[in-house]
Amino acid sequence: MSMSTTTSTEETTQLVIASQKGDSTAFGVLYDQHVRKIYDFVYYKTMHRQTAEDLTSEIFMKALDKIQTYKPHKASFTTWLYQIARNTMIDFFRKNKHHSVNINDETIERTLTDHSDMHTATDAVLRLEQVRSHLNQLTPEQRDIIMMRVWQELSYQEIAAIMDKSEANCKMIFSRGIKELRRVMPLTLFLWFLITS
């Protein structure tokens, strides 16, 4: 067999074209390359595994249904996929206004299990909740950009394409979000140092 493998990003466009022609294996490769990133993106915004899985499924179904509309010259496939993800999240939060980004019971249980000592385990859960609550005090844009930059390690260029903003604007939003966190966190950090010292 003479088929060659396609894994590099510059060949993503070839995969998309093949997928637009109905090649299911090509879409499968695209899926493998992106499913983790998209799932993590959704999880960071919902902090709930089941919800993240449901929404990830919805996002990829939409991507498959819309694959014929994707134009390589307009944006990278990754960016296009993230845009679908972000729009899906906006719709989700619009319909579920009561949904808050809090740690759930499963996360608590897992965090407690990860630590052998109950004292440090409880402390870890508290810190986790603190970080979550601080992020909740940011604007959605600030929160999104901080999570994409710090947790998903996306570049500002990628973030700008996803958010449909300029790079400079995204950097400014990131900076303001960090300043806001710095403003609300010092007292908490001080307390944390007291508890752990």
């Binding site: 879409f27 499968g28 899926y31 493998d32 499913v35 983790r36 799932y39 993590d40 999880y43 960071y44 902090m47 595994r49 993240a52 899985e53 990830t56 499924s57 990829f60 179904m61 498959l64 499963e106 996360t107 897992r110 810190r127 986790l128 970080v131 901080i146 710090v150 947790w151 960090i178 966190l181 710095r182 966190m185 950090l189």
Partner: peptide, 26 residues
């Protein structure tokens, strides 16, 4: 602050089985 953010990056509980099943459905 940044150390705290990075250190508390959530474990997203990514489930390979879920990913495999979704791939089949797609």
């Amino acid at each position: 602050l940044l150390r705290e953010l990075i250190a508390n990056k959530p474990d997203t509980e990514f489930n390979e089985q879920f990913a495999a099943k979704l791939k089949v459905l797609l």
